[in-house]
Amino acid sequence: MTNENLLSVGNIVRCFQCGTCTSACTTNSVLPEYNPRRAMEMILSTGAIPTVEEAWACATCANCAERCPRGVSAMEVMLAVRSNFADKAPEDRRIMARNIVNTGHAFNPPDGLKEIRTRLGLADVALDDENVAQVQAAVEKAGLSDIVRSTSRGGDKR
């Protein structure tokens, strides 16, 4: 990915640095280092590309795009960076991905959930083998298997 690619994402060239995105940003309210306005400015003026850490800090709440008076979406920019550097995604996110491939869920259902649900007359949340196979086939087809497998830790087991 080059800076030039990013300039066509999320209307970024229309940004006029008003800071509406930052003050509307969910992440910024708890993590001041993540500043979408500044990220846009760096892309536009210095040719920088947001770091993978920044891109994954975005909560994808879309408040920035919703409030922006210029139709810019910092979220889309962050998503573009994530996609482009998917192989460099943080470890914990890749573990989540692996969980999805293995079980259909990002997190394994907590212990005891199945019993509670049974008591309440609800179905088990775990996917059956056929569904899991479909997820895996989709991941395979999309060419994501390598990225998903490249975690150092094993992730949750089914």
């Binding site: 800071g19 003050s23 509307a24 910024n28 001041p32 306005r37 409030r67």
Partner: peptide, 28 residues
């Protein structure tokens, strides 16, 4: 203060302007 507020809210007692001071990069 150079920044376009994203919202004006109320905490029940007073109005609060939610804005980034873009010149210092500080959320106010």
């Amino acid at each position: 203060i150079r920044g376009r507020p994203s919202a004006i809210k109320s905490d029940g007692r007073e109005l609060i302007v939610q804005v980034e001071d873009t010149l210092s990069g500080t959320r106010l």
